[in-house]
Amino acid sequence: MSFNKTGDIALDHIINEMVDTVTNSKDEIFQIGEESRSEFEKLNKELTETKKQVLALIDDGDKLEQKVRFSRTRLSEVSKHFQKYSEEEIRKVYEQTHELQMDLSMKREKEKQLRERRDDLEIRLRNLEETIGRAEALSGKISVVLNYLTEDFKHVSDALEDAKEKQEFGLQIIEAQEEERRRLSREIHDGPAQMLANVMLRSDLVGRTYRERGIEEALEEVKSVRALVRSALYEVRRIIYDLRPMALDDLGLIPTLKKYLATIEDYNKNVRFSFTSFGKEKRLETKYEVALFRLVQEAVQNALKHAEPSEIKVKVEMKSNAATIIVKDDGKGFDTSKKKEKSFGLVGMRERVDMLDGELNIDSSIGEGTIVTIHLPIN
């Protein structure tokens, strides 16, 4: 057996052991995440019930406090004109007042204990949420490593010449897939899922509001529920657009951008949108159309999420060998010299532009809005 063959066997053995270790670690992390999620759901239910109990105690305490005030007034009247009342009447009023005060004191103490329990539950839920997030992120990273080990490194001796290229490309693709899955899961959980759960809760209040407060307030509650449904529908449509707008394949870049901005404007009534295109409207290679659409999409979403603008302008100029995009908003702007934590949107834009040998420039200052300029050469 040659030295190279022996080395290959030894390397494969080491990689197999690494795969087993990483797999076991991933299973343990997954178990931690699932246990944390189960505990989170249990505590969340307890928190909901505790909040209801606190509200009920506050309501009972307020009613009891009114009774105590009335009883104290009665006691003061009896004490002031004690000659008009018998000893038994005076004793009865005094005992009634004392009993009401004791009940009120006990309810307020129980209310205090429940408030403390509520605050403690909220802290524990925040900590568990962070633990779940860290577990998911770590599991995703381990998936990247595991996928890389099992797919690209099993017979690494056969691919040593292009190992560096495979490493860079493979890790980017796998990590992007894992990040996209996590992002989509969080968006559905934090967006439509939460909104629909809220719709269910709010819809239960409509009948109660009608019975207790009348039809006008019930109609207001219905309007509020409709607004929540509209927001949930917008979030679903936005997530579908994020995955892949079908119009991009059918109609091309410019019509898709027009449709996208019109849809965004429908659900952001307080923001004005304008779109201008220059040059000959033509179909490009898929990679360019997807890249240009995603870059506009990311720039617009960043402005809506962070800048609080009243107007967003999008300009696209198409030339025979290049494309230029300008996205301008009149929002609050930011200091470009300071690195923002978790600015994944800007990082993703830079990476996408770099992959196509383009240029990205961001001009912004606090209170002066932001201008994003993108130039892509088209081969």
Rank of each mutant, 00 (worst) to 15 (best):
A291N: 03
E220P: 03
K259R: 13
R117E: 14
E217G: 06
V296K: 04
K164P: 04
I264Q: 00
E130A: 13
L55A: 15
Q66K: 15
I254W: 03
E341D: 13
R91W: 08
S185I: 08
T48K: 15
Q297K: 07
V300R: 00
I312Y: 02
I378L: 05
S320N: 11
R211F: 11
L55G: 14
N198P: 06
K338P: 04
T209H: 02
R294N: 09
K84W: 10
P192Y: 06
Y148W: 05
N302Q: 05
S185V: 09
L160P: 00
Y210A: 15
E317C: 07
V199E: 02
E298L: 10
M102G: 07
L257N: 00
E298H: 08
R350Q: 13
D120G: 14
V22M: 02
I378F: 01
L47N: 15
A299H: 00
K51M: 11
K80T: 12
G207C: 05
L219Y: 10
S2H: 11
L205R: 10
A232N: 03
E65L: 09
P377N: 06
G207F: 03
Y234G: 04
N379M: 08
V271A: 01
E168N: 09
N268Q: 03
A303Q: 00
K110E: 15
M200L: 15
Y241F: 09
E161T: 13
Q101A: 11
A322H: 07
D335M: 04
R352F: 04
V144G: 02
I188E: 05
E178Q: 08
R72F: 02
V78L: 02
I173K: 10
T286N: 06
D59E: 14
F344T: 12
Q297S: 07
A176L: 09
V78T: 06
Q53F: 11
L114Q: 11
K84H: 12
G191C: 05
F3C: 08
V271K: 00
Y267M: 00
F293I: 00
I326M: 10
E77T: 09
R181E: 10
N147D: 10
L75F: 04
S38F: 13
R183M: 12
V300H: 04
L64N: 04
D119W: 08
E212Y: 10
K63G: 03
Q53V: 13
R115L: 13
F278E: 13
E89M: 07
G331T: 05
I312T: 00
I264M: 04
R294I: 06
V22W: 00
Y234W: 07
E130M: 14
I15Y: 01
T131N: 15
V236N: 02
K282H: 08
I188R: 07
S38M: 14
D103S: 13
L284R: 02
A137Y: 10
F273S: 05
R208E: 14
D330S: 02
L43A: 10
F3W: 15
D335V: 05
Q101F: 06
Y148H: 07
E35P: 01
K164Y: 11
H306N: 05
R69L: 13
R350W: 04
I142T: 00
L284C: 04
R294H: 08
I173T: 08
L346I: 12
L253A: 00
D266S: 14
D190C: 03
E289V: 02
A262R: 07
Q172G: 11
Y260Q: 01
A247T: 10
K223M: 07
H306Y: 14
R74T: 08
